[in-house]
Design a protein around this nucleic acid. Structure first.
Lengths: 206, 206
DNA sequence: CCGGACGTTGACTGACCGTTCGATCGCGCG
DNA sequence: CGCGCGATCGAACGGTCAGTCAACGTCCGG
């Protein structure tokens, strides 16, 4: 029975519809230039209804970010907790982020363009930082395990790693890099390759 | 004589004052949330005057970007044209970008936050792309010269390089990474180190 | 069949802000 | 000294939106 008090079925569905619409609209026009009316129209509801579910336009963006970044973080920590060697973990993290693009480009667009560098969501900075921390810890594990060089500053290195990743995503978002199936695979390889072994030709060993 | 027709002295100075003020204001509040009045106030002029020098608020941002990015590009190409080995050139490019932060953090803030990822300035995309091309060509020179590994996709690698760089800048911009004199120097080393030799411990040679 | 709770609507408002424009200032020249 | 012109001012305008609210439909329990 769907008595009063619980919120499911039609109502919860509408909330989701609005959030999904918001992601598409924000991806298309950017947060600031998107009007609340656009989101409502895309969701097929009156714009007043949006205020039934959210207290403001900002809260919509915030919610989009919180719910989705949270999920990513979970998958990140799962990789961190696995018992693979550190370099395999790193590959795992890269895969998570790049494949998210394939699954939901609009979502990644919003994340990268609106949230990544806006003072706006300063409150959420903590959550963002947690992503960096996972990378940093994986690097430190690799150093402790003798796989990664210990002379590197793990914190700064984690930023370089994340930046390389994000820039590729940005290239796809902005349409400045081809993003076909094959290109995504090659990007995966190139990123890991560069970050693992660097640009320089190694001294001949064998 | 300062007859009509030429624009210098007080007038040209005012134009510069407005542009400088705009950089500071955009850095502080972001482009969209900055009001024209804020810029004028920061510059110490009436807000109507802004329209004597620029046709719109957007043109102000565009001008800031165009004039400053152009200068950076020039220094980039100078490094590219030098006769140093490719890895030294790469270090040169890194230095240019990181030291610009020390010289003018507000400017870098605006570049990174507003221009880097806004469809807004699609017209300027060409100029941005030219920066990547320099990096890409330096990598290709390194490959041709046997310094860099030839199996790498130079184009993707250039994006990874730039991303790593930009992320460090972003960290400083957002106040999430310490940016003292010493930290900047360490960042320089870490970036070049990671990108040159990678994360992994090299096989023992000697 | 009634009542009320909740989802939904869309006209309205109040504020904000980019842009315009006619008035004013002040410098340099004749 | 006064004319002219570019620089400067700031009040007013017009359009745009985020957010409000009173009304309406609908569904369900009693």
């Amino acid at each position: 029975m769907r008595t009063s008090g619980d919120r499911q079925g039609g109502a919860e569905e509408t909330r989701k519809r609005i959030l999904d619409a918001a992601v598409r609209v924000f991806a298309r026009r950017g947060f600031h230039t998107s009007r609340v009316g656009d989101i409502a129209e895309e969701a097929g509801v009156a714009h007043g209804l949006l205020y039934h579910y959210f207290t403001s336009k900002d809260e919509v963006l915030e919610t989009v970010f919180r719910e989705n970044w949270g999920e990513l973080l979970q998958r990140f920590t799962a990789v961190e907790a696995s018992d693979e060697p550190a370099d395999e973990k790193l590959l795992g993290l890269v895969k998570i982020l790049l494949r998210t693009w394939r699954n939901d480009p609009d979502l990644v667009t919003v994340m990268v363009r609106e949230v990544g560098r806006s003072a706006h969501l300063a409150a959420q900075v903590d959550d963002i930082g947690r992503g960096f921390e996972v990378i940093q810890r994986v690097i430190e594990q690799g150093q402790a395990g003798g796989i990664f060089r210990e002379t590197l500053d793990a914190r700064l290195a984690s930023w370089v790693v994340y930046g390389g990743l994000e820039e590729i995503l940005t290239g796809w978002v902005m349409g400045r890099l081809p993003d076909g199936e094959e290109e995504v695979a090659r990007a995966e390889r190139t990123i890991v390759d560069v970050l693992r072994d660097g640009l320089v030709e190694p001294p001949v060993v064998a």
